[in-house]
Design a binder for these strands. Structure first.
Length: 314
DNA sequence: AAGTTCATCAACCGCTAGTTT
DNA sequence: GAAACTAGCGGTTGATGAACT
């Protein structure tokens, strides 16, 4: 037995909303609220719309204090950082950006931000190829940069996982890290994410951001404190936002490794691409890729998740 | 000027989780 | 406890306008 439809689709209008419909919905909700039942709303105000459609229209467009477009550099950084940390949990990301909707952020990421990052990455890769750096030279530079920059204190914090997560196909080329694999990682941290419903929005001013605690997951952590560290993410995020974080964007771009991402192949990569693996480490991801040690031999050595300085200099 | 491609974004769809009956 | 129902979420689609040929 299938589910009953949420509305009578035959008698429901679809497509763009007219100004009259907007006005009806807005006026009613402002005067009476939603009544906690979106399904019942349209008939009450004479709208031939699905309740879901009304809800979406209100949340994404009619609701007060909605901002459209004009994303700031700060917002870009927050979105990137959170995407790297928690993946495509747009509602959670939106909760950190007052006035932004999940739909808006999702669209912005898919249409602009991702491309922006990829474009920059591509330029850098071309520059590297042109400079004829050897792999060894690159490794040395990246390693030195890593050690000197104290970057780990600025990167998005990856919550401590209950255990080292074995990825399927450990013989896989480590450079062929795709979003699918990231999804696998996200899956393993889903318990942590599920508690994120208690997230409070970032306040809009710099000082407030720095001082506020955005993630209240510690309250939900329980005795085993499985969320240990995740609570510290806001500090890392604040630092990320208000310090010179070009390195973060660089890392993100390298992480997306255009060549790997675009065609999804696992071909042996050139020295230029190989840097992406080191950058993944430098982004602060835990030792979840430990099945790839053999392949990592040619990569810069970075502190492992268990080492004391993993999340920053002592 | 006309046709085509690309970029953007509002809206829809299907699914899941939570709540109510 | 099971079924029905709703809210919310994320992925995807389609309409539209801009840019390009």
């Amino acid at each position: 037995m299938g589910r009953a439809p949420c509305c009578d689709k035959a008698n429901v209008k679809k497509g763009p909303w007219s100004p009259e419909e907007d006005a009806k919905l807005k006026d009613y909700i402002e005067a009476n609220g939603t009544g906690g039942n979106w399904i019942a709303l349209p008939p009450k105000i004479g709208l031939k719309r699905c309740g879901k459609s009304c809800r979406l229209r209100w949340l994404n467009y009619l609701r007060p204090n909605i901002k459209h477009g004009g994303f700031s550099e700060e917002e870009d950084n927050i979105i990137c950082s959170l995407y790297m940390s928690i993946g495509s949990r747009w509602s959670i990301i939106a909760a950190q950006l007052p006035g932004r909707t999940d739909n808006d952020i999702k669209n912005y990421w898919n249409t602009r931000l991702k491309k922006k990052l990829l474009g920059k990455q591509r330029k850098e890769q071309q520059a590297r190829r042109a400079s004829c750096l050897t792999l060894k030279q690159e490794m040395k530079i990246e390693s030195e940069n890593y050690m000197l920059s104290g970057m780990v204190s600025q990167v998005p914090y990856w919550p401590q996982l209950p255990a080292v997560v074995p990825l399927t196909g450990t013989n896989q080329d480590p450079l062929d890290v795709s979003f699918a694999q990231l999804d696998q990682l996200y899956e393993n941290s889903s318990n942590m994410l599920s508690s994120a419903s208690s997230i409070s929005p970032i306040n809009s001013t710099c000082s407030q951001v720095t001082n506020s605690t955005h993630f209240n997951v510690s309250e939900a952590a329980g005795p085993n404190d499985m969320f240990q560290g995740f609570d510290a993410f806001p500090a890392a995020l604040s630092e990320l936002i208000y310090s010179n974080n070009q390195q973060i964007l660089d890392g993100l771009e390298s992480f997306y490794g255009t060549d790997n991402m675009v065609d999804g192949s696992s071909t042996v990569t050139s020295s230029a691409e190989s840097s992406s693996w080191g950058d993944i480490n430098s982004l602060g991801y835990p030792q979840i890729f430990s099945g790839f040690e053999a392949s990592q031999q040619c990569m810069p050595q970075v502190p492992t998740f268990d080492e004391p300085n993993y999340f920053g200099p002592p």
